[in-house]
Design a binder for these strands. Structure first.
Length: 479
DNA sequence: CGTGTTTGACCGGCGC
DNA sequence: GCGCCGGTCAAACACG
């Protein structure tokens, strides 16, 4: 901080140390010392000057008042010069601020210009891209279907293969938050699952959602909710394997269902609060309903981790469409509207029929459920172009396949489509999605999340042992 | 013997 | 207040 104005201010505060009341030189010194604003000399330099002038003056430390008219005149001059120096210091400061302001303004102008230029370039490019892909998709659906044959190849390679698709995913739970929280698109931001759940908690701008939540619970009670995710999977196995370790702690006969409901607790880490319920659907016993509650306080195994990444965005999208009315516009957390995410009530619903709102993704319909959902949500956009990392493909594949992948060549898109189809048509995707959902949902009580996995703003409000309150419940189901 | 499962008891919320 | 129901606990049991 060697700015001249600072030095000036500093000097103003310093008392005049050496005054020769009897010499002209001395008075000059007073003036210089007081009005030394413009003087570049340092304090030590001044002292050296004074010594060089041979002034054996003594600083008494007192501003003596004498009847000497000459001395009083000196004092007046001194005050004048003081004011002068203050004024000049202020002026210098003002000039400095003005310069800074000017500089910032020019920077802002430059930024605005750059943004405008980029935006004008981006818009036609995006439009053209969408148009090309839409045309190409019409003629290449069969290619995607052929890709189904490779589904088992991918799933059989298991976590390693999926890790490759998703890039690095070694740090466990934390990554899920990153993949969830910032899902940018050229049309805005797709909110994370947690954001959406916090919307469910009553902060949403979506009137439908507000209406629904307000009808189920008082706003003050919403903070105590716990998120739940239910995955419906068509499986013969008693329990789908989702990559986590579970310990059964209870079983109950639920009313209206001949099949018992089993209760499991995560045992991958001590104190992990995640629980799940497994029950067969009363209507269709082939459908296994797995409901997860809570958030893991430990890194997930690769099997669960990788697929958690790949499907988190899908869940986020589903949650972003969480309303009870069909085909309604979706308001994201940042206020953007997503008219293209028209949610399919046959696959994803948010229901308030129970004491807690329930988002239901019914993927037990025929065909590729995920692709159908995505197609519904973005009819003119291929998986490659999804504004969020569906299965991790749109963002990761280019780096794997090559930089030209995004040049929307039909061949590269066929590869992407094939892999996408392969993943989504495999029955094991059920397990993967289960793992994903488990990791997505934030546990209300786990304040000891690993790696700052505090993705759930809604979860942070929840209190263990609180009275049973309406809970947001997301239901997914698969073939 | 350690770990996981089974199963009846218990608890708390909710509706009548 | 009472009963129902969902969820949890914990002792007993099974298994490797």
């Amino acid at each position: 901080m060697d700015r001249p104005q600072d030095m000036a201010l500093l000097r103003l505060r310093n008392p005049i140390k050496e005054v020769d009341f009897f010499s002209q030189n001395g008075r000059q010194d007073v003036t210089e010392a007081g009005a030394g604003v413009a003087s570049p000399k340092g304090h030590q330099e001044e002292e050296a000057d004074a010594l060089a002038r041979g002034g054996a003056s003594v600083n008494t430390g007192l501003y003596l008042l004498t009847v000497n008219s000459q001395a009083s005149q000196t004092v007046v001059e001194e005050q004048k010069s003081k004011h002068k120096s203050q004024f000049s210091a202020l002026r210098i400061e003002l000039n400095r601020v003005r310069d800074e302001n000017r500089r910032l303004r020019s920077m802002l102008d430059q930024l605005t210009e750059s943004y405008t230029a980029l935006h004008s370039q981006l818009l036609p490019a995006v439009q053209q891209k969408e148009h090309e892909i839409y045309r190409w998709q019409d003629g290449t659906t069969s290619v995607a279907r052929r890709g189904e044959s490779s589904a088992h190849q991918i799933m059989e390679h298991g976590p390693a293969r999926m890790r490759m698709i998703h890039g690095n995913s070694e740090d466990g739970v934390g990554e899920h938050s990153s993949s969830l929280n910032i899902i940018s698109s050229d049309r805005g931001i797709i909110p994370s699952a947690e954001t959406q759940l916090s919307q469910v908690d009553g902060s949403s701008e979506n009137p439908n959602l507000m209406q629904e939540t307000s009808s189920t619970a008082a706003p003050s009670d919403l903070s105590n909710r716990r998120e739940r995710v239910s995955v419906r999977a068509r499986s013969d196995a008693p329990m789908i394997s989702d990559g986590c370790q579970w310990r059964k702690y209870g079983q109950k006969m639920a009313k209206g269902n001949p099949c018992p409901r089993a209760y499991y607790r995560c045992t991958m880490a001590t104190g992990c609060q995640v629980r799940k319920q497994v029950q067969r659907c009363a209507e269709d016993k082939a459908v296994l309903i797995t409901t997860y509650e809570g958030k893991h306080n430990h890194p997930l195994p690769p099997a669960a981790k990788a697929m958690a990444n790949t499907t988190s965005a899908a869940a986020a999208m589903l949650l972003s469409g969480s309303t009870t009315s069909k085909d309604s516009l979706v308001a994201s957390a940042n206020g953007f509207l997503h008219p293209y995410i028209l949610y399919d009530s046959t696959m994803a619903t948010l229901s308030a029929s129970t004491s807690f709102p329930t988002i239901t993704l019914d993927l037990t319909q025929s065909g590729n459920p995920i692709q159908r959902l995505l197609q519904r949500a973005h009819p003119t956009v291929s998986p490659l172009q999804m504004p969020f990392p569906i299965y991790g493909l749109p963002q990761k594949l280019p780096s794997m396949v090559g930089p030209q992948t995004l040049q929307h060549g039909p061949r590269q898109q066929a590869v992407v489509d094939r892999v996408t189809s392969a993943i989504t048509t495999d029955p094991n995707f059920t397990a993967a999605l289960t793992a994903a959902i488990t990791s997505i949902m934030g546990a209300p009580t786990s304040t000891t999340g690993v790696g700052g996995n505090n993705v759930s703003s809604a979860g942070a409000h929840m209190v263990p042992g609180s009275p049973r309150l309406p809970k947001p419940c997301t239901t997914f189901s698969l073939n």
